[in-house]
Write a protein that binds this DNA or RNA. Structure first.
Lengths: 185, 185, 185, 185
DNA sequence: TATGAATGAGATTTCATTCAT
DNA sequence: AATGAATGAAATCTCATTCAT
C-alpha cells in the first residue's frame, strides 16, 4: 500500500492523471492489479489519498511561516522557508499540479485545492499586511506571490527554464523580501 | 475546420489532452469523425495546430511589451499589456496549460513551450535590466514574474481564488512596476 | 443490431444472464465488442431490450386467448393456443426464465415479469370464471394453470422430461379444458 | 461448515450460482476465504453439497405421498403433503431453481435434477393412475402437475403473485384432488 | 468533401483461488 | 484449523481510428 502510494506519485508525476494507467502504477509498485483494487476503489481513489497527503504537508508548511524581519536575517529565514517549500514540491508538486487538471477541479478535490491555496496565501498575506500600507490588497498580492512561487518551482524543476535551484531560491527570497519591506520610491 | 479548432480549444480546456475524446470535439464542432480525420492526422495533430496558434499570439504579445516609464503612465501601460495577456489567456490559457501536461513535455511541443516562456521572460527581462542594479539576475527574476502572471491568471480565471479580473490586473501591474523601479530600502 | 439481439437470445439461453459473456454474444453475432457497446450500454441493456420483445409478444398472445367452448372444438382451440405459446416459448423461453433469475427480480424487469404473468393469468382467469362456480378463486387457479404451462414447457423443451411436444400439448389442453368445464363429482 | 452451507443457501438464493461471490458466502458465514477452501474444493463443490441435501429431502417427500382418498379427508391429506413441499421449498427452493440454471444442466447435477423431478412425478403419477381412465398418460399428466406445484410455489414465495400461502395450498390441493378424482362431464 | 457505423487494441475492474503465517 | 492479503486470468468497457458509402 505504501508502495502503491509511492508508485502513484511517480506515475502521476510522469504522465498526469488521465494518461497514467493502473497497469503502470501496479508495475512500478511491483504488485498486481488485484492488490491495487484491494486498497483503492479505483484510480481516482488512489489519487485522492495522495492529495490528502499533499494537503496535510502543505498546511503544515503554511503554518510554519513565522514573522519575518526586515534585516538580512529575515531574508535568510524566508529563503529557508522557500527551500522547504521546494523540497516538498519536488516530491508532491506533480500531484499538486495534476490535481488542478481540468475535470478534477469540479469536485471535492477542487475545493481542497482552493482551501490549500488560501492557506498558503493567508500565511504570506499576514506578513505583507504586517508591513504597512501598499496600494494593493495584501490578500490579493499574497496570492500573486504564491502563484509565483508555485509556478517558478514548476518551471525550474521541470527543466523548462535553465535556472538552478539556488538561483531560484535567491530570486524568490529577494523578490518576496522586497515585497514585504519595500515601498515605492 | 475552424469549427474543429474552436471545439478543440473548448474541449481540451474542459478535459485536458488525454481526457478529451475525439467524439467530444466532433460533437462540439457539429461534424463527424470522418471529417475530423480529413483535416487532422490524429488528436495530437489538432492539438499541435492549436499550440501553433497560441505560440504565434504569445510571441506577438511579447514583442508588444515596449519601454515602460517609471511614472504612473508607465504603470498604466504595463496594466494595459497585462490586460491583453489576460484576454489572450482567457481564450488560449487552457491550451497553454494542457500542453505542459506531463508526457507532452518530452517532444517538440515541450520545446515550443520553453521557447515561448523564454520569449515572454526576455521581454520582461529587458525592462528590468534597463532599470539598474538589483542583486538578482534579471533573466531569472523575469521568469519569476512571468510565472506569477501565468499562474495568477489561472487561479483567477479558474475561479480558484475569488479576486476579480480588475483586482488581479491592478495587483500584477503594481507588483511588476515596483519590481522594475524599486530598490531596497 | 438484429444479429446482436439474436445472439443475445441464443447465449442467454445457453448460459443464463450472469454466465453469458459479452464476448460470447459478440462472437455469436460475428461482430466486435465496440459494436456491442455502440448499441447497448452494457449486458443488462441488451437483456432489457430482449425482455421488452418477449413482453410484447406475450401480451399479444394473452390477448389472443378468446372464448373457449366446452365441446371438443373448444379443446382444439385451446390446444392451438398452447401450441402458439410453445412456439413462442421455444424462442423466448430462456429469456423469460433468465429474467426471473435472482437479483434481476428487484428492478423494473421484475415488475414487468409480474405484469406479464398477471396478463396471462387474467386471460385464463376470464375463461375459468366464465364457467361457473368452483371452490377456488379463479384468479388464483388461473395462476396455477399458467405456472403449469410455463414450467411444463420448460421441462419438455429442456429435455428434463422425456415427453414430446405433442404429448405435452395434449396433456395441457386436456387438463386445462377439464379445469374449465369440469365440476367435482 | 454448517455456517458455510447455510450461507451458501442464502447467497445462492439471492444471487444465483454465477453471481454469488465466494466473498459473499464467506462474509455471510462470518468466516474467511481460507476456511472456505478448507471444506470445499471450490464454489461448485459447495453447491453440489447443497444439492445433495435438497435431493435427499425431496426424495423423502416423494416417498411420503401415500394413497389419497377421494373424500374430503383425502383432499386434506393432499393439502398437508403440499404444505410439507412448500416448507421444504421455502428453504431449498432457490437451490432447486439455481441448479436448473443453464450450463449446470449439462453435468451430473442436471441428471440429478431430472431424476428428482421423475421421483416426484412418479409419486403423483401412481395416484392418478390408481384412479381410472383419463385420456392422457398419467406419467405425463403427473409431470404437468409437478410443474404446476413447483412454479406456483416459486411465483408465490418470490412475491411475483399476490396470493398467500394458504390460498396457494387450497388451490393446488383442489386442482390436484380434482385431477385425481374427476372425470369429464 | 462528408458521414457515421464498425473495429479492436488496450484500458479498467472483478473475483475464484492460493499460500504464508 | 483458521486467516486474509495477494494474485492474475478473465471479464467488462472505452475510444482513437478506419473505411464503405
Amino acid at each position: 500500500m505504501r508502495r502503491l502510494l509511492d508508485a502513484g506519485i511517480d506515475v502521476f508525476a510522469r504522465r498526469g492523471f488521465h494518461a497514467a494507467r493502473v497497469d503502470d502504477i501496479v508495475k512500478a509498485a511491483k504488485t498486481s492489479h488485484g492488490t491495487f483494487y484491494l486498497y483503492f476503489a479505483n484510480k481516482e481513489d488512489l489519487f485522492q489519498a495522495l492529495v490528502a497527503d499533499v494537503a496535510e504537508e502543505m498546511r503544515g508548511l503554511a503554518d510554519s511561516l513565522g514573522p519575518i524581519g526586515s534585516d538580512p536575517r529575515g531574508r535568510a529565514e524566508l529563503r529557508a522557508w522557500l527551500d522547504r517549500f521546494t523540497t516538498l514540491y519536488e516530491h508532491y508538486g506533480p500531484i499538486l499540479r495534476t490535481w488542478t487538471e481540468a475535470e478534477i477541479d469540479q469536485n471535492a478535490l477542487g475545493r481542497l485545492g482552493t482551501d490549500l491555496l488560501g492557506d498558503l496565501a493567508l500565511a504570506v498575506s499576514r506578513r505583507i499586511a504586517a508591513n504597512g500600507a501598499r496600494d494593493v490588497d495584501p490578500a490579493v498580492a499574497s496570492l500573486a506571490v504564491v502563484a509565483m512561487i508555485e509556478r517558478f518551482n514548476y518551471f525550474v524543476l521541470s527543466g523548462q527554464v535553465s535556472a538552478d535551484r539556488a538561483e531560484m531560491l535567491d530570486t524568490l527570497a529577494t523578490v518576496m523580501h522586497d515585497a514585504l519591506f519595500t515601498s515605492p520610491r
